[in-house]
Design a protein around this nucleic acid. Structure first.
Lengths: 205, 205
DNA sequence: CTGCATCTCAACCTTTTGGATGATGCCGAC
DNA sequence: GTCGGCATCATCCAAAAGGTTGAGATGCAG
């Protein structure tokens, strides 16, 4: 029995590659989308068994939002994330959004095929080298930053000084320092550069 | 007349996609390599007209080093960089290393084909949206950091404090501060976070 | 030989950052 | 209605970072 697949990637070349590699007797590519929005429309019409989705989709909604929207369809396709990046927050985010699996783009084609079948069958499928990291990440979850704190963290990561951040958010420097103190405690660091580094490593920003 | 091409990319899927998209009556893909080392060996034997090369090649040498090595061959193939990233320092670096062009992976397939023919003909070929940036970058060249300064900058960007950097490099904190002061003047910034941000944006690190 | 760049270090001073503690007002959950 | 989380602000203090100046050692290129 063949599994129907919808490809979602903003790079035409990658879509062609996936189509060439996947379209076999057990997998049938029934559509391609370049954006998340397009993917949702197409999935609603084509009812693929599996959607193979990149996380980075250029402009527009990202892969995680796309995943959530796809999973809200009826019938909902299984969503398999295929991406170049392996940042913790994104993997966890994708899984929270209902993804059935997460693969890195440097895997061999047959691993992707296997993942597609597993996902179609209702299984979870994580690239082996990611599985451990994900469990680790679930045991040591990144502390939840509030929206405001994230905003401050993002400004901080552009090199803004407390004064700049304060001006930008229309608050006093004291407030900024208060937010930053909270961020540091939650992240377990004691300097802005470490916070920035950690946030970038884990995909927090 | 058909142009012969060697593909270099660490992702099997992308190689398949490129092959599917490029292999036409005017372009003939005569080989694929997953690493820079492999690319150099293959190019030396196959004598392709053009090498289409990703910048990020996983482990091993990167695209810029590969380009330099390829251009040292006799006969030297034209090297066309095809990558996802558009960081200034890398574009300039690739061109310095002798690349005939620089394309972003999200372009349409026929642009790639056009680029290949132009490169084979000895032309330079830059994605239109990059051309302006490159000229800009040549007019405002990033100041040259010394090796030591780069080393300090890299450590700084991991969140290391001056003390940590000093320990790591076996020098005193005074020396580190001296290097950092130089880095700041050269980059035109006045805080480590701004330096880090700038360095990351321009691909300096 | 003599600049020139680089790396190294030091002392001095100012500004920024970070830590501790606490207060206020708001809102939503129980 | 009260409790807890959040955002706001404040003060005080200590540590880190940044700016300035200068200086010794090295090594290379003209």
């Amino acid at each position: 029995m063949t599994t129907t697949v919808l490809l979602v990637d903003d790079h035409p070349v990658v879509r062609s590659g996936l189509r060439a590699v996947l379209d076999t007797d057990t997998v049938h590519v029934i559509g391609e989308a370049a954006t998340g929005e397009e993917a949702i429309t197409l999935a609603a019409h084509l009812h693929p068994d599996v959607v193979l989705c990149d996380l980075r989709l250029g402009a527009g909604i990202d892969g995680i939002q796309t995943t959530a929207a796809l999973r809200a369809l009826d019938p909902a396709p299984a969503v398999l994330i295929l991406t170049t990046f392996d940042r913790d927050a994104e993997i966890l985010g994708a899984i929270e959004a209902g993804a059935a699996g997460y693969l890195l783009k440097d895997v061999a084609p047959d691993v992707i095929v296997e993942g597609i079948h597993r996902a179609a069958g209702g299984d979870m499928f994580l690239a082996p080298d990611l599985a451990g990291r994900v469990l680790q990440g679930m045991r040591n979850p990144l502390p939840r930053l509030t929206d405001r704190e994230l905003e401050v963290l993002r400004l901080m990561s552009t090199g803004a000084a407390n004064k700049d951040i304060a001006r930008n958010l229309f608050v006093t420097e004291a407030t900024v320092k208060s937010h930053i103190a909270h961020i540091f405690t939650k992240l377990g660091v004691d300097s802005r550069s470490r916070a920035i580094h950690l946030a970038q490593e884990t995909g927090l920003i």
